[in-house]
Write a protein that binds this DNA or RNA. Structure first.
Lengths: 141, 141
DNA sequence: CTTCATGCAAATAATTTGCAGTAAG
DNA sequence: CTTACTGCAAATTATTTGCATGAAG
């Protein structure tokens, strides 16, 4: 469990209860979309408004506290800013899992002339372990 | 210039004038979002409706004729289904450029247990050549 | 012919905004 | 105190849907 107040202050943002709650939930889920984030947060903070969620997502992305993960075929999700990694996205259940990579692996990919690299987003789409197993079970049942 | 009628028929879709027009523009632009696609298309096909654009984008994605490119910080764009490549996305001007890659390069990335790989989407964010040069010009002016 | 696609208008969903009241530093 | 944040409601934008008409195979 991270110190969300600290994270916010380092980003020059006031550490409001709403923001720490949002960060806490994003951290718990790993990745989450706006609507699910909102539905989750109002269980513990009943008065927190959807507009506040939107506004904070925008400012926290701007300040680099969180990162928007663009996903083919669905709405974006948000994650805490963290070490470089790729996403394994299940096209059956929608789960998103992080996978660490050796940052040297992609050095050649990033070092290119005529483009000043800033960041990358690498998504692999397919079936997660659970869904592979589930489909086997169904098929053989 | 490709044979869009053929592409559509192979995908079991009727080759309507609207669909070929949409494919032609996507092909010309390389990547394009819904709104720009619509604005462009009505110059030559004044009566083509936005609803038709939406419906066709959805069905052509389903049939694998086109691919949705999810982009951090903006609406998705669409491209023709083509050989594996990565995207160089300029965070200043928004341009999206394809870059071919050796498919062996990423073999280790894709071959992982506990995940059945289907497809990947690799985006590099940064500054394109034009915007690098432009910022130099401004800075030294 | 028969089936599927189009266009319109209306419905719904998603996101943004303005502003008065509150809380953080 | 002062500035920035929140919550509400309203506005705007984006996307989807139903249905009558029209075109493709």
């Amino acid at each position: 469990m991270k110190n969300y107040v600290d994270i916010l202050k380092k980003a020059d943002l006031k550490a409001t209860l709403q923001r720490t709650a949002i960060l806490e939930i994003i951290d718990q889920y790993g990745h989450i979309g706006i609507e699910q984030l909102y539905q989750t947060i109002i269980r513990s903070h009943a008065t927190l408004s959807l507009a506040t969620v939107y506004k904070n997502i925008i400012t926290m992305v701007e300040k680099g506290v969180i990162v928007e993960v663009a996903i083919m075929g669905s709405k974006p999700q948000y994650e805490l800013k963290k070490a470089e990694h790729i996403h394994l996205i299940c096209q059956s259940c929608g789960s998103v899992n992080d996978e660490m990579i050796d940052s040297d692996d992609l050095k050649l990919l990033k070092e290119r002339k005529d483009f000043r690299f800033a960041s990358s987003q690498i998504n692999l789409y397919g079936l997660c372990k659970v869904c592979i197993d589930t489909s086997h079970t169904k098929a053989s049942a």
